[in-house]
Simulated assay, not measured.
Amino acid sequence: MHGPVSAAWLLVALCAATGAYCLLRLRSAVEEQRRAAGGEALMGFGMAAMAVPAAVFTPPGWAWPVYASVFGLAALHALWAARRDRHHLHHLAGTAAMVYMAAAMASAPPAAHPMEGMSMHGGTGVPVVTGALLLYFTGYVLLSGARLVPAAATAGGPPPPARWGDRPELARACRLSMAIGMVAMLLTM
């Protein structure tokens, strides 16, 4: 990341915590929560692994094509699941962004690691794909953030779910934090 390595570690912590909560959601009694939780956990842990500063751990050259393959398969799954649930289109955008970043890392010179502030596009401006992904995730962050603002509580509203994995507002907060992390990672491209 541009700036101190501590910012990269904060991104690692945010994404890993989000992935851990998504694993907890896999045990939810609510089917809607379980359906999306696995892909979101994969995204959280994958983003955390990608954000580890290169000064601490530099993945071998074969790791980036593996990342691209794993997230490519996740993108195919999200595309298939989008037939019945539009929310999976967001998963498709996220997995496509991960494939894009992994492919950029695979084609980068060994010394260039975007999490350390190196530019992946040679300083000729923002590539079209990076710009489009930045626009999407920035819009998603703004829209999701606005949705998290609590509405006036009604007296006859349903009680909040008892289990942590069944709380839809926490799931939305996790998606928001991963989108913020994606914006931070895309800005380093």
Score class of each variant (00 low, 15 high):
residue 86 R to A: 06
residue 76 L to M: 15
residue 66 V to G: 01
residue 118 M to I: 10
residue 81 A to Q: 01
residue 140 Y to C: 08
residue 30 V to A: 10
residue 68 A to V: 02
residue 121 H to L: 09
residue 63 A to H: 05
residue 151 A to L: 14
residue 176 L to D: 03
residue 172 R to C: 03
residue 13 A to Y: 06
residue 180 I to L: 15
residue 136 Y to N: 05
residue 102 A to R: 04
residue 21 Y to W: 12
residue 189 M to S: 11
residue 148 L to N: 02
residue 148 L to Q: 01
residue 183 V to D: 03
residue 180 I to F: 11
residue 78 A to C: 03
residue 50 M to I: 06
residue 69 S to A: 15
residue 142 L to P: 02
residue 166 D to A: 02
residue 52 V to R: 01
residue 27 R to H: 14
residue 160 P to K: 00
residue 117 G to I: 12
residue 63 A to I: 10
residue 4 P to N: 11
residue 175 R to F: 00
residue 58 T to E: 09
residue 148 L to G: 03
residue 132 A to E: 09
residue 91 H to L: 01
residue 23 L to G: 09
residue 173 A to I: 07
residue 3 G to I: 12
residue 59 P to H: 02
residue 163 R to V: 05
residue 12 V to C: 08
residue 182 M to V: 05
residue 145 G to N: 02
residue 25 R to N: 13
residue 48 A to F: 08
residue 148 L to D: 01
residue 12 V to H: 03
residue 125 G to K: 04
residue 12 V to A: 08
residue 174 C to G: 10
residue 23 L to V: 15
residue 152 A to G: 12
residue 173 A to W: 04
residue 55 A to T: 09
residue 181 G to T: 10
residue 182 M to T: 11
residue 167 R to F: 08
residue 149 V to N: 05
residue 85 D to Q: 14
residue 164 W to K: 09
residue 186 L to E: 05
residue 13 A to M: 11
residue 90 H to W: 14
residue 41 A to V: 07
residue 159 P to T: 00
residue 119 S to P: 01
residue 70 V to W: 07
residue 164 W to F: 15
residue 99 V to C: 03
residue 8 A to Y: 03
residue 71 F to K: 03
residue 42 L to E: 08
residue 119 S to F: 07
residue 158 P to C: 03
residue 101 M to V: 13
residue 108 A to G: 15
residue 16 A to L: 11
residue 30 V to E: 08
residue 15 C to S: 14
residue 167 R to M: 11
residue 104 A to Q: 12
residue 163 R to G: 07
residue 46 G to P: 11
residue 169 E to D: 08
residue 166 D to M: 02
residue 67 Y to H: 12
residue 118 M to Y: 09
residue 70 V to Y: 06
residue 24 L to V: 15
residue 31 E to Q: 15
residue 142 L to A: 01
residue 114 P to V: 11
residue 27 R to V: 12
residue 15 C to F: 04
residue 96 A to L: 15
residue 158 P to A: 10
residue 82 A to L: 03
residue 61 G to Y: 07
residue 47 M to I: 10
residue 18 T to H: 11
residue 74 A to V: 07
residue 150 P to N: 05
residue 135 L to M: 13
residue 142 L to G: 01
residue 181 G to R: 04
residue 142 L to Q: 00
residue 165 G to I: 05
residue 120 M to Y: 10
residue 35 R to N: 07
